[in-house]
Each structure stands twice: as structure tokens, then as C-alpha cells.
Write a protein that binds this DNA or RNA. Sequence first.
DNA 1: ACAATTACCGTGTACGTTCCCGTTAATGCG
DNA 2: CGCATTAACGGGAACGTACACGGTAATTGT
Lengths: 394, 394
Amino acid sequence: MRHVAIVGRWRSSSYGEADQPSSTITAVREKPAKSIGIKQIAAAARISIGTVDRALHNRPGVNPTTRNRVLKIAESLGYKPNLAARNLKLNRHLRIAVHLPRHIASFFDPLRSGIREAAQATHSVTVDLDFRTYPHLGEGDLKLLEDDVGRGYDGILMTPGNPLLVESTIRKFTDHGTAVVCVASDAPRTNRLATVSVDAATSGSIAAELLGRVLHEEGTVATITGDLKTLDHGEKLRGFAAALATMAPHLTLIPAIESHERPKEAYQATLTLLKRKPRPLGIYVNTAISIPVLQALEESGLCGRVQLITTDLFPELVPLIESGKILATLYQRPFTQGKLAFETLYRYLLDGVQPQPVTRLAPHIILRSNLPLFLDRLSDAVEFNDRSGFAPNK
Amino acid sequence: MRHVAIVGRWRSSSYGEADQPSSTITAVREKPAKSIGIKQIAAAARISIGTVDRALHNRPGVNPTTRNRVLKIAESLGYKPNLAARNLKLNRHLRIAVHLPRHIASFFDPLRSGIREAAQATHSVTVDLDFRTYPHLGEGDLKLLEDDVGRGYDGILMTPGNPLLVESTIRKFTDHGTAVVCVASDAPRTNRLATVSVDAATSGSIAAELLGRVLHEEGTVATITGDLKTLDHGEKLRGFAAALATMAPHLTLIPAIESHERPKEAYQATLTLLKRKPRPLGIYVNTAISIPVLQALEESGLCGRVQLITTDLFPELVPLIESGKILATLYQRPFTQGKLAFETLYRYLLDGVQPQPVTRLAPHIILRSNLPLFLDRLSDAVEFNDRSGFAPNK
DNA sequence: ACAATTACCGTGTACGTTCCCGTTAATGCG
DNA sequence: CGCATTAACGGGAACGTACACGGTAATTGT
């Protein structure tokens, strides 16, 4: 596919540049140039707009000589296609299914909001969003997915629970021409178009570095993880262990404790953990189920004495961070993840932009000092503004 | 101004919800409903599209009875205006001037990129971006601004150097109908529409909290600031001092040292600072001019022994973070700031959405462990993709 | 030589809105 | 009653593009 190198619309002027007289700033025009379109090109080339259209889009049936002439003129005139007209003509609507678990709501609700926000910001194309919800990661998701295979969606957004099981389903989607974008977790070695997630290994590394910086004495640290079947949790632990070895050699790691996302298990595990000798100096909880851990700490009277790093942000954590009982929490930015995932899918479907396969964003390190900046995100479950805006002007 | 409550296009279905039979998922339609427009409303109401248009937009010349009827029908049919068609008809182009200093390039270049990216993502409306550049914050910016007052811009993006001086200029712009959005720094108590910036006070607080957590012994910490005339730097110091008092009472603050953004001054100041007794345990550099500070530390052989927190991210800092000579740097996310500032201005100009006056984003805390995730942003000075995308399909 | 094929190009319509102008019917006033 | 005024509405052109279709000239076959 050929492209004309279109000169952008950006003009710039300088002031006080040695090699560029400041008089150049008078060169800016008062009124924007009459926007030039396919018609103006046709007039300049003395041909019809149909030919211009064919030439610009590399469609067959146009003489290579005239095509080049058109491309030249288009470039010299600074032609930029009117996207409103284009989108109006080929009246597209995108149909996108969104498959996400209900729990943990503090994470997936804002993720959904991010998707909605991005979809709403989409001017000029109507987007149909179909939200599908299932109880937990890896519980009933496959069945729900399979139901949508034949429905002719343009794309779907999903969080793969067990990457191995969804592979064939993803293939079915792509075979039907449906683009699949993973969000919040990856399903590598599948046909998925792209993945947007927080870099899990880095989350673990940050936790290790923070603990290493704060804890000066020699000792042990522990991790409490959710379910090791999900790719993310294993990645976090690997990052944690690796960073601990290189950046905090004075701390040794107690083997990971798996809580299987059950509060009871997490609570019991923490209690037995605190009875160990020597008692761990720090704990890294890499799942959102951190409240039972804190409860166990509290009941043991060790709340201030064991440094704690948690994951995600939800209302119950706020007072604990404010009081210093939690050193830091690693915020996985669900809203941003959703927004980015949608934008990736959207640009692929509409502009054909092949996205980079994985987008890894940096988690936010939330401390006591920057906590206030994140509090507004907690209450925006319904922040979506549905006034569709009839009035265009004023 | 009246609005019809438009039902959104989002559908949702559940699985395994107790009070919602899973059979509801079969209710989704295979093909998207024929998108309904002003014409369909007219047909349903047995009137012409002209009247429908008038009714929907509260234009005069329509009987209140029929207007209400139209609004009812529009709502029941789930009418959503086709923005592409709208934007095509009222052929808008936005003209926006962007006034930013050239230095510090590591900050303002990505900020410009963010603006460009957001402007490019704007489908369906052509945006003219005029970049104006002046050497430094507060040097010649006013003159350049005044030149643009009468040019009829729809909006301008700027970084106020000295907030007091730009007040009258901003007023002139708004008097001419030009919306002003500040980015990276604020000009409070002026007519500016909105401000997008990193919360400076929080930056300072984070620095203090980190130092307080890492330094256990009693001692002193120092700050090296740029120019206290710019609002941001003062805010950072206030945040630093406040957080130090509440969260790290074992550390006492040495009065701020002003470097006036000159490397030489920063270098000298650091040298004399290091000769003090007791020697400071930590230093917070709240401006991007941190290299001279590091040089002074290096020459004094104290590089690992004094905890250092810097600001922003540029290539020279990378090895210093990797080697642990810098504890952390507070990244002000220029790209995101630019993108957000543009989006704010855009949504106001186009949709009339009154933005919230200040948007404060959280700075990223860059440590050694999460540094790799930020490295790609360093090389994207020319990441702007200028292929304007002729080919709509495929 | 003429017909058939092909390569190239012009024309027209539609997309959904906005907005101007024209039309109708009702009202006001002398 | 006749005419002007006005409220309420219909009709239609345009915005810039994509694309189907029809047309013309050039090329080929016999």
C-alpha cells in the first residue's frame, strides 16, 4: 500500500532563535486557508474528483502518470482528508463485546468505565458496546465467550483467566474476523491482536525495591499471592524475587503463600506466617484480597511493625494508608487500562493501525503523600456522563 | 438549554446472576439495529426533518406541543446524533495556538508531542495547531502572546511563567473569544478556562515521604529549587516541608537553595551545601537542572551516601538511577499533560463541555525497578506518525 | 475494416445534518 | 372583506467523500 507523505498542518514560529529571524512570526496567516479537499485537487489537476479519489486510494483504473500528478498536487496543496465526510459516507458502526468478571469490582468497574469513556469520546463513529459479565476470573467465562463467537462482532475486549483454555476460543473469534484484545492480563501465544496491562513483573520489582530501601536490617520478607494459575500473579512473584536478589540482598524470601483469592485462606496464612521465627519484616500482598491480611496483622498487634505493600486501591485501604499501616499500594490503573485497550482496538478496526502487541503500563505507587490524588477515582463508578450533547454550538 | 435524556447504546448481559436468568443473554440481536436518525424521527412523527431539527435543538419556530412529541419519540427510539454528519455540515476547523518554551526540552518536547497526538486522534474535525516557541519560561513569552491576541484563535494552550504578568493578556484573549488553557503550571485568579498540571505540592510531599522512609537516623535534608517565581517550585517546597514535618519529624529542613535554573549556581550551591555540618542526609532537587548537583556530589565522593530525589526524566539520569545514585525521580508526565490539556480544550470548544477548572495528575515515582517502563518515552521526540491515513478500509 | 475488449476517466447519488427559503394557515387591523 | 403580519412547518441545497455506473478513447482480434 502506498502512501503520500502528507505535510502536516502544524505550523510553528520561533522567537529569539539566532538562525531564524523573529520576523518569521509575521508569516502566520490570519484566517485559516480555505480548507482544500478532493475537489480542489481535481480543479488544479483539471480532472474529475473521481479520478482524484482513485489516485489517492490506489484504486485500479487510473493512469500511473496522472496518479503521480495527483499525489504531487495533493501534497503541495497540503491535502488532508475530511474525516467527517469519510465517516459519514461509509457509515460504520462498530460492534464490540466486552467480557469481564464482576469481581473484583474495585478493579473491573473502573476498567469498564474507562472503556465507556473511550467509546464515548469516539466522535464520528457509532460504537455498540455489549458488556458481558461473569462472577469470577475463570468461572464461566468460556461459556459466555463461545456464545458470542458467531455473532459477528467487530472486536472483543476480554481478560483471559486461564490463558491455556481460551486459546481455541480466541482462534474461533479471529477466524470469524473478530479482533480480540486482552486487557489486564495476557494470553500469549494466541491469536489475540494486542494486550494492554500493567507490567506485573515490575509491580513485584517495585515492591521488592521499596521494602529493600525501607528495611535496613537483615531478615525475611513474605509474599501472599492470589491464584498462581493466572499469569499475572506468577509474574509479580518472579519480579519480586528477582529484584529482591539484586537490590535487597539483605532480605531473604519466604516461599510464596497462595490464598486462592479466598479471604479465609489469606487470613489463616497470615496468622501462621506471623508465628514464624524470625518473624518477617515485610509482606507483599500481590492480590486485591489484602483486608484479611491486615486483619491478621492487627489482631497480632503487629500492624505498624511489619512493612506492608498491597495491590490496587479501594475504600477500605484508604485509612490504612493514611495511618501508615500500609507502606504503599501498587495501583494498577484499571480506568486507564480500559481506555487504552479500547483505543487500541478502535484504531485497529477503523484506521487499520496494527498495534504493538503488548502495551505495558507502569503501576502507580500510592503512598500516604500522594493518596489524595487518587481518591476521586474511587467514587466514579457512575461518573459516566450520558448527556449525548445535542447542541453542537455554544 | 434543554437536553433530552438519551438512552445509551450500552447493552449488558449477565451470567450466573441469581436474580437474572442466564437466558437473557439470548436477547442480544445479531445485527445492529438500523441506525435511526433525524429522518426516522420525522417519519414516526409524520413531520419534516426540518421541524425535527428545530425541536431537538430548541430552535425557535416550532410548536411546544410538537416539540415535546418529537423529544419523546427521539428518546423512545434511542436517537443519537450522527456526529460525522454534523461535523461535516458545520465544517468546523479549530485553530489553536500553543505557546511553550523551548527549554527544558526534555519536558516541553514530549508535552508538544502529547498535544499533537491528541490533535491527531481527533477524527472528524480538522485542527490547526500553531506552535510558538520562546527560549525560556518567562522570557519573551508575553510579547509572543500579545502578537496572537487579535488573530482569532479558538483556543490557546500555554504555560504561564509569571502568573501575575499574564493576567491581563489572558483577559484580552478571553475578551476576543479565545479560550485559554494552562498546562504544566497554573495562573490562578485569571480568566483561564482550565489548568492541567501535576500536583506540585504532592511532588514535594512524595519526596519528603520517601526520604523519611529511607533515612532512619536523625539529621537534615536540603532542597535545591529552580526559580521561586514560578508557582510550581514554591508549591513543591511547601509540600516538601509540610510532609517532612508530619511524616518525618526526625529530619529537619535546611532552608531552600535557589539556583535560578542556572547549572553553575546549582553546582556551587551543592558544593557549599555538602560542606555544612552536619552534612545533609538527603537532597530533593525540584527542578530538571539536576545534573550539576550530581556532579558536585560525585566530585565530593558522596554519591551513594546522600539520598537524592530528582525531578523529571531525561537520558542523563538513566544510568544514575540504574546505579542507585538517585533514589527516585518524580516524573511529571509531560506527554500526558499535553494530551489532557488538548482534550480539555477540545471538548470545551466542540461540545461545550465546561471542564473542571483544575486537573491535577499524580506524578510517577520512578525508581530503579520501574525505570525500564519509562525509557521508551525518552526517544519519542519524533514518534509522531505523519501518515495521515488515506486508506480508510483494511 | 469493424466489432469487441480494455484502460481510463467523468457523473451522479447517497451518507445525516444544518440552515435558508418558501409555503400554508391563522391572526391582526383598517 | 382585503391585505399584511406571523407562527408553524415543508422542501431542499449543501458539506466532502466513497463508490457504482456509464461513457469515451485506445487497443486488440479477425
